[in-house]
């Protein structure tokens, strides 16, 4: 016993070093990001308070670019509204005899608007913090978009803050398709540039050209179908010859991310119950 004590005292710096190194490695490698405690992330109380303060100052910096983006997106949406109105009218006439209201069928999704308080693009695994949390109706697994396209998916929620797994994070795979076709593949970030990602496992029979738009497939309950994601740059070789592998230029500008919309699927409970 005495020898042991002497030993520990003599080598105490090594013992302390081993302890801290072990603790760090535990934090670093122990579990998947989803299981981490909220106070160890940027959604915790101290971190989110600081980031809210900084956001009050820095939110003005990118207003011009964001305004331009909004204008472009707005005009696009106006076009869509016009065409959708026409379709809606046709469908309303078609189901006139039915008792169900069409607007409910067509709108299972609603949005929660949130401001980005912290955002990283430099790490291999990136996260975003926003100023809305579970008391505002945000829940894990909800999709997040901004005015340009897909941003990520909610990961951890605190009372008034939430951490989002960025699209720039290999933990996040997004089911996507080439606009106008039905074949879908899986979009994943390869860690090289915050402006590009890779669409994998796209069937060989898919027809596409560089510049074509990539949209969400709608095959998950998280994102509605047809949300823009990016455009095709080129096709690269896949290890498996039966699939295409495309380099995608992302529409979302992660360097100036400011206001995002969190997608609430009002039919999610229904879908989950059906899938059980």
């Amino acid at each position: 016993m005495r020898n042991l004590l002497n030993f520990l005292l003599r080598y105490s710096p090594w013992v302390v070093f081993a302890f801290y190194a072990g603790l760090s490695c535990y934090l670093l490698y122990s579990d998947s990001p989803a299981q981490r405690h909220v106070y160890m992330t940027s959604a915790g109380v101290v971190a989110s308070t600081v980031y809210d303060g900084v956001r009050n100052v820095t939110s003005y910096f990118h207003l011009r670019e964001i305004n331009d983006d909004l204008h472009a997106r707005n005009s696009e949406l106006e076009d869509q509204v016009l065409s959708l109105r026409r379709q809606l009218k046709e469908m309303q006439e078609a189901v006139y005899a039915d008792t169900m209201t069409v607007s409910e069928i067509l709108h299972p999704f609603s949005f929660i608007i949130a401001s980005v308080t912290n955002n990283s693009i430099a790490h291999p695994y990136n996260y975003i913090t926003v100023n809305k949390g579970q008391l505002d109706g945000v829940e894990p697994e909800m999709g997040v978009v901004d005015q340009n396209g897909v941003v990520g998916v909610v990961n951890i929620t605190a009372d008034h803050h939430a951490r989002i797994i960025s699209l720039l994070n290999p933990d996040f795979r997004l089911s996507c398709k080439v606009k106008g076709s039905d074949a879908f593949g899986s979009l994943i970030w390869d860690g090289h540039s915050p402006e590009e990602a890779v669409l994998e496992e796209l069937p060989k029979h898919t027809v596409f050209a560089p510049g074509d738009t990539i949209v969400t497939s709608g095959y998950s309950a998280v994102f509605p179908e047809g949300i823009p994601v990016g455009s095709v740059i080129e096709s690269v070789r896949d290890s498996d010859d039966n699939f295409f592998r495309l380099r995608i230029k992302l529409f979302t500008d992660f360097t100036t991310l400011s206001t995002v919309r969190i997608i609430k699927n009002n039919e999610l409970d229904d879908i989950r119950r059906a899938e059980q």
Partner: peptide, 27 residues
């Protein structure tokens, strides 16, 4: 040395909590 290690670990951990890099800077 023990204090050096403790303070080093703590400042790393503090930066980690803000940066979502749990354990990286601490280590």
């Amino acid at each position: 040395t023990n204090w050096m290690l403790t303070l080093g670990f703590l400042i790393g951990l503090a930066v980690d909590i803000f940066s979502n890099t749990a354990g990286l800077n601490a280590l």
